[in-house]
Design a protein around this nucleic acid. Structure first.
Lengths: 337, 337
DNA sequence: CTGAAAGCGCTTACAG
DNA sequence: CTGAAAGCGCTTACAG
């Protein structure tokens, strides 16, 4: 049994191969009756247009590549936030009739050449970029390529980024704690230049504090990456410092979950002794004990926006950077002072 | 600036286009010096073989499709276990120089036609199949197609499956609880024919009980799907029945996390009053409070095995069904009776 | 509205 | 070891 081609369908339908091709692409040129007949026969024969041939001829692949950054080969835990993004991007792409190639890569590898120059994908979405300073250096060389990154949206930066309004996110998280009467609020997160997103959350935190007439204290900030272990260690460090705090804003849910464990180990109850707010609203946030109050990033909406923005880049249109609005999700990990 | 093709590389290297093609495919026919020269020029020009053209000519795509089953469009929480599988499959495929197309699909959609007949993918890996009875009916029509499913490995079933030795998993989980002195051990999971994997875990549970001279009690079994909410409801149901138990084996970690919450709400401490064992070893299991004792399915190994098995199918070779060995991971959610 | 024909950029038998 | 040539299965201008 040989592969069915458009020529076979043409024979069965008694038309030319060109007409088959047109009918299957919903060309308005072809007679509606003929089109229906051809489509019926194609379905009966389980015929599908050969994508290699179609791609080669038409010079586009209707495929995007989604690269998830990983520091090392071995680290197989993907941040659940990225999993949500990945799912929502894949669905948004499918809705636009695009396929998605998935890959886990390190920054050092040359994905542009691999995916774009081989015509495997028309554009690339990057989830997680590792260190910002290294990444931006790489992006500068990309001029004209179709690469969109989930990350910080910074005035004048090269490349194309879409991300959450992190400053606003940090602001509403901290304001929530302030309104509950907390004054000594710790910040767990990396505020170095390598993490502009967390830095922005920190700036939002500071702004909320200032509005309440409070100055931020370096002793209340502890560096943490978005990982459970990292949040755990940061909270321990904070406890060791022996500085008073009745609340903590963690710049990731994963970090917040770790911090909660560390606080408990230190004999503190959450939210009894310390209120905790996270960031991301990963699934685990809602079924943790206590369920985590957090700042949700709308991944479903973000996926659509990213796919649309990438396809604009591909089409050569201008894309403006867009900020996703964060939303405070109140659960059980905070209590009035 | 036009697209660089193999003809351009040929011109630059002073050889024919055929030789460029051979050199880039590491053909032993071409002179090593010529090959190196061509490869160098190709790299300098950022040239990559056009995959559409290559696929069309050679009639294979070096791509596999990975379909993650979803009941509904809206349900965006992917079981973290599948996330690990997805990552490990993608890595295993990359190691064999295969690309991975990702898609979220419902059982009703016709993925065989979409991916295989269009030559988009040489084979398909399915993660999550929904109801087994419906799925197996679909698989029966697949004869000759290259579809591999993560699921139950059952003697004589149609199609190609790779999965965990669930019976053994259920056995070692239950044996662990028995060795801790528990006698009244609840089972949370779906034991209907639609879930042969959980059914097998239940059979392993029964076997362990029998070996200890205990008969399983229907009152100690509550139906739960692998989801937090479902485990929560099942545990509540169990508490309502007013049957004594000092331990529970939950056939998924997600369900176990929900069950722990329900038990706590019911005034019981874990592991103080009830010991709990889960299944899967998802990341959340290790950072839950208490950290969950569970049965690990080796996803990294499973990914490699699945990709290899699928590529065997594609090559027309026989694949034998394979069972992944489960492993008990002891953490903090169990205590001696 | 339809058909004949060119050609996308490769791979690979064939001839040397 | 190398080159000239055919052809993979489509899409799409061109002509009618």
């Amino acid at each position: 049994m040989n592969r069915v081609t458009s020529l076979d369908i043409a024979d069965l339908a008694g038309v030319s191969q060109s007409t088959v091709s047109r009918a299957l692409r919903e060309s308005p040129l072809v007679n509606p009756q003929t089109r229906r007949k051809i489509q019926l026969i194609a379905r009966q024969q389980n015929y599908k247009v050969d994508s290699s041939a179609s791609n080669l001829r038409s010079q586009h692949s209707r495929t995007i590549a989604m690269l998830v950054h990983q520091e090392s080969e071995m680290d197989s835990d993907i941040n659940p936030f990225f999993v949500s993004m990945l799912a929502s991007i894949t669905r948004a792409a499918a809705a636009r009739n695009y396929d998605v190639l998935l890959s886990f890569q390190q920054l050092s590898e040359n994905w542009i050449v691999d995916y774009q120059n081989s015509n495997k994908a028309e554009g690339i979405i990057l989830l997680g970029y590792g260190g910002y300073t290294d990444y931006i250096r790489k992006v500068e060389l990309l001029d004209g390529d179709h690469v969109l990154t989930w990350g910080p949206v910074i005035e004048g930066q090269p490349g194309h980024f879409i991300g959450c309004d992190n400053r606003q996110g940090g602001y509403i998280a901290t304001r929530h704690l302030l309104r509950l009467g907390h004054r000594e609020i710790a910040f767990l997160g990396d505020i170095s230049d390598d993490c502009p997103e967390m830095q922005d959350r920190y700036l939002g935190y500071c702004r909320a504090l200032h509005k309440a007439g409070i100055r931020e204290k370096p002793a209340l900030q502890a560096t943490a990456a978005p990982a459970e272990r990292s949040g755990y260690l940061a909270a321990r460090e904070l406890l060791r410092r022996d500085v008073a705090f009745s609340a903590a804003f963690c710049s990731s849910d994963l970090g917040a979950l770790g911090a909660v464990n560390a606080l408990r180990e230190g004999g503190l109850s959450v939210p009894g002794d310390v209120s905790v707010v996270g960031f991301d609203d990963i699934p685990a946030a809602s079924y943790a004990t206590p369920a985590l109050t957090t700042v949700r990033q709308d991944t479903a909406g973000a996926g659509k926006i990213m796919v649309d923005a990438l396809l604009q880049l591909v089409a050569g249109e201008a894309t403006r950077s867009q900020l996703i609005e964060p939303e405070l999700i109140i659960r059980a990990s905070c209590r009035p002072r």
